Amino acid sequence: MTLDRLFHWARIQGEGRTYQPLLAGLRETTFPALERAGGHPWGAWYGLFGLRSNELIVVTSWPLDAAPSGLIAGHLPAGAKVLEQYSFVPTVRPETDTPITRPGLYVFRFFDVHHRDASEVAALSHEAWTTFENTADYRAEPQALFAERDRTRDPDDTAATGTMLLLTWYDGLESWQRSRTPAPEARENFRRRAELTRGTLAIATRLVET
């Protein structure tokens, strides 16, 4: 069953050279304000590849009818700003919005897709994971596959495009590298999924405590 929650993804930049002052400000100011408004942090990550040293990715969980974009922008620490943001809903994962706590490498992979293909992308991914994450060759576990909340605004527009987001946990970079050659069953599903995507972007990160 699909989890009935809204997940807000934000790339936030602080004033300093590193992310630590930004994280301290988020803990002191932003996260308490969001919790008072009905949301809570699902996770926060700093970049290994693909983010500046003073940026964080912050994902928060909300009721489906929430409008978190303005709330987050309005309660940031002094000098911080949102550079990019999305409102997502889960497809086949996650099944809970319990905050993420496991240390390791987390890779965010964005897919540019036609909205009409989002359900098929989710189904192909879910089937592939049965072999992808059950192997002794590496340690990996997909945490989430999100689709944009507003993708059904105009169901008659079959050419409409948008973004899906896959978040995968690995125990380290070596597992990520080995997972590039998964079991044949998973590889075939990933090939079919790639045929449905118009482009991808990956960001490698590590989790920080919120």
Rank of each mutant, 00 (worst) to 15 (best):
M1A: 09
T2E: 07
T2I: 13
L3Q: 06
R5L: 12
H8E: 09
A10H: 04
A10F: 01
I12K: 01
Q13T: 09
G14D: 15
G14Q: 12
R17E: 10
Q20G: 02
P21E: 11
L22E: 09
R27E: 09
E28R: 13
T29K: 14
T29D: 07
T30E: 00
F31P: 01
G38P: 06
P41D: 10
P41F: 02
P41H: 07
W45S: 02
W45Q: 04
L48Y: 11
F49S: 14
G50Q: 11
S53G: 03
E55D: 06
I57P: 07
V58G: 00
T60R: 10
P63V: 05
D65I: 02
L71E: 15
G74L: 02
L76P: 04
A78N: 09
A78L: 04
A80E: 12
V82L: 08
Q85K: 06
Y86R: 15
S87H: 10
R93I: 01
P103L: 01
G104P: 12
Y106R: 04
F110L: 06
F111N: 13
D112P: 00
H114T: 07
H115S: 02
H115C: 05
D117Y: 07
A118D: 15
A118V: 07
S119K: 11
A123F: 09
A123R: 15
L124H: 06
S125T: 13
S125E: 10
T130P: 01
N134D: 09
A136R: 15
A140E: 00
E141Q: 15
E141D: 14
P142D: 03
A144T: 14
A144L: 10
L145S: 08
E148C: 06
E148F: 05
R151V: 05
R151F: 12
R153C: 05
R153A: 14
D156Q: 13
T158W: 08
A160N: 04
T161Q: 15
T163G: 02
T163F: 04
L166E: 15
L167A: 08
T168V: 14
T168D: 03
W169D: 12
Y170L: 02
G172S: 12
E174H: 03
Q177D: 15
R178P: 00
S179G: 06
P182R: 10
P182H: 12
E185H: 05
E188H: 08
E188T: 15
E188K: 11
F190P: 01
R192M: 04
R193L: 15
R193S: 15
A194V: 03
A194F: 07
L196K: 07
R198M: 11
G199P: 13
L201P: 00
L201C: 01
A202W: 00
A202Y: 00
I203T: 14
E209D: 14
E209R: 12
E209S: 13
